[in-house]
């Protein structure tokens, strides 16, 4: 078990180094920018005195290394700075917007897991037959389709032509006014369910379907491809053939051995796509006016709100690094070969 411990320590150090680098890079980005952030802080019509005041308040008049140390100190204390536009703490904003993003990301990945495993294993069973080819096109298509465009197409079809789903947002206006959801987890569907607000539940489900579906296309492609290739390999392995030869029922073999073996890599792919979806959600959220981190970031980009953009970058990186760390450790634990690499 010693080698696992060494691997663990190495891996954690790497994660910390990555986070350190991101913080340093974001600091450089925010202080190398030629124009001064004080201006945005005080608003478009501010006077010179107001700007001076803001420069002091933001510590922009201090030497760069002091600013750097301060930046670190603040981050350690969970202070990602204040949004230039709304003057609210960025971390607070991120935590406000995060649940909406997580809600579609989690749902999209659950969908991706179910659809991906089904497609992938069916495709492997029917290797080189028509179904396999079709599924291959679908899965390659899933990773090739520009999500922002696909989102528009779904709006055009399901709202514009068929009229069966709402265009965007998280809830209808009349629900907001007369059946408001009491926020507990921040996941509207879950909050509505546990507070027994069925009207709002139905409404929020209707709203989440399109964005979650669009967001799921990429991971569906990813999971399908991984499950397929693993299943093809596993089905070829000797113990499966042995089991078949010994008269085990096909579906038993299929579920108990083959699928089980293919599931681990599928979960790994899913873990990666989960981290990916956090940024993937950006474009999708904007189109569906989904009040999550993506909408927040894109607005921040339009407003040149650097602390917000960089805050999201730091937060997103930490999130991403920890998911990867968790997955790597899990994999190393399950499969000793990984540790040797």
């Amino acid at each position: 078990m010693a080698s696992f411990k060494t691997y663990l320590i190495k891996r954690i150090i790497l994660a910390l180094v990555v986070i350190y680098f991101v913080i340093t890079i974001t600091f450089i980005l925010s202080h190398v920018v030629p124009s001064d952030p004080a201006e945005l802080y005080v608003g478009p019509k501010a006077t010179a005195e107001q700007r001076e005041k803001a420069i002091k308040e933001l510590g922009l008049n201090q030497p760069i290394y002091i600013q750097y140390l301060r930046y670190f100190q603040n981050l350690v204390n969970g202070d990602l700075g204040k949004s230039l536009r709304a003057h609210t703490p960025v971390l607070h904003d991120i935590l406000t917007y995060l649940p909406a993003t997580l809600e579609i990301v989690v749902l999209a990945n659950i969908v991706a897991l179910i659809v991906g495993v089904a497609f992938g294993s069916y495709s492997a069973l029917k290797k080189d037959m028509l179904a396999d080819h079709l599924i291959r096109i679908v899965s390659v298509g899933g990773v090739s389709i520009p999500s922002f465009w696909f989102a528009l197409i779904t709006q055009l079809v399901f709202f514009g032509i068929l009229g069966i789903f709402p265009l965007d947002s998280r809830l209808s206006s009349d629900i907001q006014l007369f059946n408001p959801i009491h926020t507990i987890t921040g996941f509207y569907t879950i909050d509505a369910l546990i507070t027994g607000n069925i009207v709002a539940l139905v409404d929020s489900v209707r709203h989440i379907i399109l964005p979650a579906f669009v967001l799921a296309t990429y991971p569906i492609g990813l999971v399908t491809r991984m499950v397929r290739s693993m299943m093809v390999e596993v089905l070829n392995e000797n113990y499966i053939r042995f089991a078949k030869a010994n008269g085990f029922k096909d579906n038993l073999i299929y579920y108990k051995y083959a699928l089980k073996n293919a599931l681990t890599p599928a979960l790994m792919a899913l873990g990666l796509s989960f981290a990916y979806s956090i940024t993937g959600a950006f474009l999708v959220e904007v189109i569906f006016s989904w009040p999550g981190l993506g909408t927040y970031t894109v607005n921040a980009i339009l407003e040149n709100d650097y602390p917000a953009i960089l805050g999201v970058t730091i937060f997103g990186t930490i999130f991403y690094v920890f998911i990867n760390l968790f997955l790597d450790i899990l994999q190393a634990y399950l499969d000793p070969r990984v540790r040797l690499q």
Partner: peptide, 11 residues
């Protein structure tokens, strides 16, 4: 090739 009937039944 595995018999997919069984799979179908299970589904």
């Amino acid at each position: 090739m595995l018999n997919s009937n069984a799979f179908r039944k299970a589904i």
